[in-house]
Design a protein around this nucleic acid. Structure first.
Lengths: 183, 183
DNA sequence: ACCATTTGCTTGCGTGTGCAAACAACTTCT
DNA sequence: AGAAGTTGTTTGCACACGCAAGCAAATGGT
């Protein structure tokens, strides 16, 4: 795999020994660590106050945003970045908590919808403001509005270059990054 | 439910700022999803080619960057965002693979160092270029060098505002953010 | 119509993780 | 010095997740 990309700056420093190059490894490390930290930060609040895990919240909020409060299992799995089996178990747990029901798909009898119950919707009506307030606290304390916007845009760019193909993650090669005169 | 934070691709067009409130949910969502996607992307490569999980890699690279290739268990736990118990198990696994050893701390006989073995160092000498190349592929395809630097800086800012206090994650309030009369 | 292949979802099993408890060694207080 | 508390690390247990296999329903070929 030769990714003869355009990187020329960056250290080429002595292998694994030094952090001083402060390069892409660090950037990705920061992204991963920030995500872990945020996940656990949110988990503390949501779990202690509403007995809701971050994963459950992620599922419920997607259902809440969908028309009818329902989504196909496979679609939900795709959106939450869970495998089908993981989603099945997650919906099982939410079902035991009375937050979600299953509905058979009339057009494809293999298929199933996950449907938000009224209890689920009530819970989200409490959870979303809580979560939003927490996010506000983090972002507002860390960023200026302009920086916040920049971060959002950069992350969207990154996210749009990553997608799943048959369960395997792949990187979209960018056709629009400046390849001057390319054609 | 007034949640319409669904992300849209390529909103680079006209209006900005009208839905800035809902964007925060999306921003955090993008961060979390990107991190998950990257984690799994890296896992595919490292695991298939070197039988190395992302977690193991994260531990080994920190050891490799440390003088003597060793680090206290607690320090390593803190850096990897694992709990002490999680780290103990992780080091156990790496020990069974011959990549890491434990060394008693002479100054504090409760303490232990995790030490990279020569096999571990050899593995990292192969893993780091692989990982680096993959990161290059992702970042180079998604970002211009300038954007890449911006992202790194923003992420460092974010990361620096999150830290653990006795196992609980807290947000550092920013002293230098000016809160213009809005609040 | 029949059979093979594919798709959507669910289970069996193994593994990684956190929490709480346990334990040893260090520190502090009297 | 001795007792009480704190700190660094390791176990018992429970749980969430992925992978591979299983099963029902849809699709395609003949």
């Amino acid at each position: 795999m030769e990714l003869e990309a355009r990187h020329r700056r960056g250290s080429t420093g002595g292998g694994t020994g030094s952090d001083s190059d402060g390069d892409r490894l660090t950037t990705v490390g920061l992204l991963l660590e920030s995500a872990t930290a945020l996940r656990q930060l949110f988990h503390q609040r949501l779990d202690s106050e509403l007995s809701l895990s971050t994963q459950s919240f992620g599922i419920l909020i997607r259902l809440a945003r969908s028309p009818g409060g329902e989504l196909r299992m496979s679609e939900l799995a795709s959106q939450t970045l869970l495998t089908p089996s993981g989603l099945t178990r997650a919906i099982d747990r939410l079902h035991e908590q009375g937050l979600v029901t299953r509905r058979a798909c009339p057009e494809d009898r293999r298929g199933a919808f996950a449907v938000l119950t009224s209890a689920g919707r009530d819970l989200m009506d409490r959870a979303v403001p809580l979560h939003r307030a927490q996010i506000d606290g983090v972002l507002a304390s860390a960023f200026t509005p302009a920086d916040e916007r920049s971060l959002a845009e950069l992350l969207r760019t990154l996210r749009d270059h990553l997608y799943r193909d048959n369960g395997a993650w792949v990187v979209l090669e960018a056709p629009d990054v400046d390849c001057p005169g390319a054609g």
